[in-house]
């Protein structure tokens, strides 16, 4: 069953009078439980594509359909609901709130889901996720007290908090050492296999890409299977 379909999606930016198709007429289908990697040069449109799939950047034309819903035809609240409950997004850039501890940053996504406070069960789960990414001793640390790589892992843990169906990971291991990177990859694969979570991962590391079931390459806004 096609879980996610991207139909003729184009995203055009205008920069100083120049027209840039960051994503150019991409059509793609992704099945439930697939582990897809995307490689490509900087500026080739990977982040833009991921953002469009993640419901945070409206395409200039084309449709993104997730489990039968045309994302950009949804109203604002339902699109937020999609981002909150279906997607776990690991952004390319740092994305933690500085006033919150590691655990609270992870619990934040729960607030947008439940409308209430985070329960004890949620707290336990957040701690569990932090342990899974190797930060069991940093639960109450603030982002400023963490290294770049540790912050990155908090963001990774956060992506799993609401039991997403689809993980969008934008260079998730970019600032991790080799050993930690390998650990994270094992963690991703176990989540992919164990929970049947679909993964779309942008990476510059071709070794990592080789470990995935399906490999894509982007260049100049276009995409091709490898």
């Amino acid at each position: 069953m096609t879980h996610l379909t991207i139909e003729n999606v184009t995203k055009t930016y205008f920069l100083e009078g120049n027209k840039i198709d960051a994503v150019s007429n991409i059509t793609l289908g992704i099945n439930k439980g697939e582990f897809v990697s995307i490689v490509g040069h900087s500026g080739s449109g990977k982040t833009t594509l991921l953002s469009i799939i993640g419901g945070i950047a409206r395409p200039t034309s084309g449709r993104v359909v997730f489990e039968g819903d045309d994302l950009y035809a949804l109203d604002s609240d339902r699109l937020s609901g999609y981002r909150c409950e279906k997607i776990g997004f690991m952004f390319q850039f740092s994305s933690l709130l500085p006033v919150l501890t590691a655990k609270e940053n992870i619990l934040l996504s729960v607030l947008f889901k439940s409308n209430g406070g985070a329960s004890d069960v949620h707290e336990e789960k957040a701690v569990e996720l932090l342990k899974m990414v190797g930060l069991g001793d940093k639960i109450n640390a603030y982002p400023s007290q963490l290294s770049g790589g540790q912050q990155r892992r908090v963001a990774i843990a956060r992506a799993f908090m609401n039991d997403p169906e689809l993980i969008l990971a934008d260079e998730p291991t970019g600032d991790l050492d080799e050993e930690t990177e390998a650990e994270m990859m094992r963690f991703f694969k176990s989540m992919n296999a164990g929970k049947n979570i679909t993964f779309i991962m942008v990476t510059h590391n071709s070794d990592l890409a080789m470990q995935t079931g399906r490999r894509l390459r982007m260049s100049n806004g276009a995409i091709a299977e490898l």
Binding site: G54, I56, S76, D77, S80, G81, R83, C84, E85, I87, F89, F91, S95, L96, L97, P98, L108, S109, L111, F112, K113, R158, N162
Partner: peptide, 15 residues
């Protein structure tokens, strides 16, 4: 930026 992050991880306007 923080609000952008919150929106991106699922905050509604009402949140």
């Amino acid at each position: 930026k923080e609000v952008g992050i919150m929106r991106a991880i699922g905050a509604k306007e009402s949140h």
